[in-house]
Structures are given as structure tokens and as C-alpha cells.
Design a protein around this nucleic acid. Structure first.
Lengths: 169, 169
DNA sequence: CCGAATATGTGCGCTCCGCACATATTCGGT
DNA sequence: ACCGAATATGTGCGGAGCGCACATATTCGG
């Protein structure tokens, strides 16, 4: 195994996430999984507290309090869900705008590290990362977790495998 | 700008750091910058509270309390520094062992994602990452920050630029 | 020699989160 | 149709991690 290369990827990932998280905190004024929550809620219609919990990898109560904060910041609304037990989470207008700023901030943070490469090098790097992600053995939940900060406007055809993998679960 | 590739690198970085941080928490029983602190203290002779603060990007008091935790966990010792104001931080035997476990855990976390690539692909990815890091405009402090979790046993010749850059500061 | 700079420690409070417990709704077997 | 199990959410409580403001000790520089 090439541990030297693993180390380099670890260092790069740390640098990337430092910049993403710093920008995210400036945009939403909060840290932890709060920015990711805002992005995840914006993906879908009918996101529930419990789905969010699993995607973010938080405890149940931690997720409830996280949503409390989003609601008190007027970024998210709790509405009655289809199932009487569920709560359906929706972005407010302000929440959608903040989410948008968040995605822009994230892409520009990564791009600022990436733009030292030539277009050809960037493309080669992109293809390798795409291969790497394609071949991961990810459950559907894993996919949402990995993609919990992804920009759905620029990520057409996500490379992560969908149906197969992890014993079809 | 290729924002699609920036998005992929962001997703990969998130996946990598999720795994690194999970492993680190299991090894040291603590999160935040505590694992990185243990690694940084292990690099040098005569690490001080203030140098550590700058590398980790924490406040002064946050760093003092972080070291308090490391001391109470018997991973680090405070010794009188050369300068009468400074405190010299040293790993205990237990601290050195924990640091070692931490580095092993980190490399294996990254490797578990990386090993779906062929040796040739891995090598190409490594070269591109190396190029990417080489061309960053990093101050000396930036280098330490980016490398704050790096495995000094496997990272021979770090690609990050040393002397030039950021107006020679 | 004394004020400024440097380095560390402390009181206090905030954010983010988990555990344990409580409540409400739906599902499933009889 | 009914009742226990499963599902989904909310709450009391506390801990981990961190920052701000302030205090103290040591060193530097004019």
C-alpha cells in the first residue's frame, strides 16, 4: 500500500475541509453539522427529522436541537408531515438564500485550492476522483452522508454507486 | 472554472475527514483539535502553547484548556521552557503511543477509500495531489496547519513550498 | 529602568451534542 | 377491533470544546 499517497490525500482533505468549514461558518454563523443540515433539507421535499439524523450521523436529540436552531434563525420551517408522527422540514425564503450562499462559498473554497492546476491536470484529477468514488461500496445512506454538502446544481450524475453494494441494502 | 470537479473534491474530502475524525475519536477519546494537537506536539522538541495555538487555529484560552485535557489524560507533560514565560510541551510515553495509534488509524482510514484504485491510478492521483500542494501559496504557518495531522514517518519530502510565498513571510 | 510586548493561566458563558426519558402516532398479529 | 411493538418527535440534563475578557509573569527595547 502506498501510505505516502494516503498521507497526501489526508493532508489535502484537511486543507479542503478547513476552508469549507470556515466559509460555512461565516455564511450561516454556525458550525458543526448545521451547514450540512441546511443543504440536505434543501435537496428534498419532505425531509424529516429522522432522515436528517441518519444522514448527518447525529443523535436524535442533537438533530432536534439542530433543527430548533435553524427554526429560530428563520431558515427552516416545521410543517406537519404526511405521517402524523413525522415533521416535514422546509426551507424558508431566507433559508434557501442562505443555502445558496453556502454552496457558492463551498465551491469557491475548493476552487481556490484547485485552480493552481492546469485545465488538463484538473480534468485528470477529476476523472481519478470520479473513479475512486464510483468504486466505493456505499449504502444509500452512505451516499447521502458523503453528499451532504454537495452542490446539486453542479453535480450532475453523481459517481457514487446507487443500487448494488453493501449486500443490496 | 470546473465547478463540477471542485464539488467532487469537496465530497471526497468530506468523506476522508469523516473517517479520519471518527478513527481519531476512537483512539484518543476526544474530538475537535485534540488529536491534531497530540500529533503536532509529537513533531517537535519544545513545542509551546502559543505555537500550538497558531497551528491549530484556536484561541489562546482554548489551547490552554486543550493542553489541560491532554495533561489530565496523561498524554502530555508541561515542562519549564527555555524562555521563562514559555511552557514546553512533551509527550509522555503513553502520549507517544497514542499518537502512534492515531497516525496508523488515519493512514488506514484514507487507505480504505483509496485502495479501490489500481497502483497506477493511485500513483497518478498522488502525483496530481503533489502538484496541487506544491503550487499553493502557503506561509510557514499554513504549512504546519495543513500538515497538523500528517504522518511524519511516511511523509518524506513534503510537497508544500517552504521559503518563498506570501511575500516571504 | 520602566513601559511594551510576549506567553501563560482563569472566570465565565456559549454552542454543539449525547443519554435517558417521555409522548404521540402508526403498524402488525391475533 | 384491539393491544403491544415499532416509529418519530420532543425535553431535562449534563459534558466537551471553544472564545472573550481579564489577570499574571517574564522578557525586550529605548
Amino acid at each position: 500500500m502506498e501510505t505516502g499517497i494516503a498521507n497526501l490525500l489526508g493532508a489535502l482533505s484537511l486543507a479542503v475541509m478547513d476552508r469549507i468549514e470556515q466559509g460555512a461558518r461565516e455564511v450561516v454563523g454556525r458550525g458543526g453539522e448545521t451547514p450540512a443540515a441546511l443543504i440536505v433539507i434543501g435537496y428534498g421535499q419532505g425531509m424529516t427529522n429522522d432522515k436528517l439524523r441518519r444522514i448527518l450521523g447525529l443523535s436524535h436529540s442533537g438533530t432536534v436541537r439542530l433543527v430548533d436552531r435553524l427554526v429560530s434563525d428563520q431558515l427552516v420551517e416545521r410543517r406537519p408531515g404526511k405521517d402524523g408522527r413525522e415533521v416535514a422540514l422546509y426551507l424558508t425564503v431566507k433559508g434557501a438564500a442562505t443555502r445558496n450562499d453556502l454552496l457558492v462559498s463551498r465551491i469557491s473554497a475548493v476552487a481556490s485550492l484547485l485552480d493552481v492546476l492546469s485545465p488538463a491536470e484538473t480534468k485528470r484529477l477529476g476523472m481519478l476522483i470520479r473513479e475512486l468514488l464510483e468504486r466505493q461500496d456505499t449504502s444509500e445512506l452512505d451516499r447521502f452522508t458523503i453528499c451532504r454538502m454537495c452542490d446539486d446544481r453542479v453535480c450532475t450524475n453523481c459517481p457514487l454507486p446507487t443500487t448494488k453494494s453493501k449486500r443490496d441494502r
